Amino acid sequence: MRKIGILGGTFDPPHIGHLLIAQEVLEQCKLDEIWFMPANIPPHKKTNDVSSINDRIEMVTKAIEGKEQFILSTVELERNGPSYTVDTLKELKTKLPDVEFYFIIGGDMIEQLHTWERIDELFEYVTFVGLQRPGYSQPTMYEDKMKLLTIPQVDISSTDIRERLKKGRSIRYFVPEQVRHFIEERELYGTSASIRNR
């Protein structure tokens, strides 16, 4: 049975923290692939806060280029309305019943799982992989239903990257070089030509 990890998010933009998480989970859980799954309309975000679908697809494609076990999945982008994880996994399990799915969540989400849409149904389709900060543990009533991993921490967020660009600061080494070039070429997030090559 194939084992596939899913890393969901807005990926606006994808950064080296996402890649590190994917690699660590791939190795520690002995998975066959990690699917990077950009959300269409994340339930917790306003739609005007998110870059276009095409730009986010292109950035993820560039971020995972050359890594055969990292796959772009557009399943949530092909569905209208808010992206609820339970609907996505139900659809995937129907199409791929012989695949064992693992859904990756950060430490901040572990203690909020009880607020997720139809969480008990979701556990029928997927095993959660919760990422813990070294030396910390997040309490959850679902601990017996998930794998808890400790991985190296990179304190980078997409929000921080967007803010840096708005202030005219470099994002070199925060994102893969192909992604940085794409952001600068498209002048995303208020990027101007003046910060190129920094």
Rank of each mutant, 00 (worst) to 15 (best):
I41A: 12
Y102G: 05
L149N: 10
P134I: 06
I71K: 13
N80I: 12
D49V: 03
T74E: 07
F11Y: 06
T150L: 07
C29D: 03
F103R: 05
N40K: 08
N48T: 10
D98H: 14
D55C: 01
L72S: 03
H44R: 11
I119R: 05
N40F: 00
T191C: 12
S51W: 03
N80W: 10
D160G: 09
I53F: 08
W35I: 05
P43V: 04
R56F: 02
S194V: 13
R186S: 11
Y84F: 15
Q153W: 13
N40D: 06
N48Q: 12
I104P: 00
R133I: 13
G5T: 09
A39M: 10
G17V: 09
M37H: 01
I57F: 02
G81R: 10
D49K: 12
V175G: 01
K67F: 13
M37W: 01
R169Y: 13
V129L: 07
S83V: 11
R186E: 13
S51T: 11
S73H: 11
I6V: 15
I183Q: 02
G8N: 09
E121Q: 10
Q112F: 06
M141G: 12
L149Y: 08
W116G: 03
G190D: 02
W116C: 04
P176N: 00
F174I: 05
F36A: 07
I104R: 05
E111D: 15
K67E: 13
I4R: 08
I64R: 00
H114W: 11
H18M: 06
E163Q: 15
A39E: 11
T150R: 10
G106P: 07
G135T: 10
I64Q: 04
D87E: 12
G107A: 13
E111P: 10
E68Y: 10
M59R: 02
S52A: 12
I57G: 06
L7M: 10
T61Q: 10
I151L: 14
T127Q: 14
S192R: 14
R56N: 00
K46Y: 09
K167H: 13
E24A: 14
F182Q: 00
P139C: 06
R196C: 11
T191Q: 08
E124S: 14
V99H: 13
Q132W: 04
K46Q: 14
V126G: 00
G168F: 05
R79C: 09
E187H: 13
L165S: 03
E68W: 08
I110D: 02
L131R: 08
D120K: 14
N40I: 02
T150I: 14
G17W: 08
Q178N: 15
Y142A: 08
A193N: 13
I21D: 00
Q153D: 13
K67M: 13
G135W: 07
L188G: 04
R180L: 07
L7A: 07
A22I: 03
F123V: 07
E91Y: 11
D120G: 12
L92C: 06
L26C: 09
S157P: 09
M1N: 10
E27D: 15
G66S: 05
K167W: 03
R172W: 02
Q132R: 14
D55N: 11
K145F: 03
S51F: 04
T47K: 15
Q153P: 06
S192W: 00
E65S: 14
F182C: 01
I104W: 03
E184I: 01
W116E: 04
K3T: 05
T61S: 11
E33A: 09
I156H: 06
Q28D: 12
F11N: 01
K62M: 01
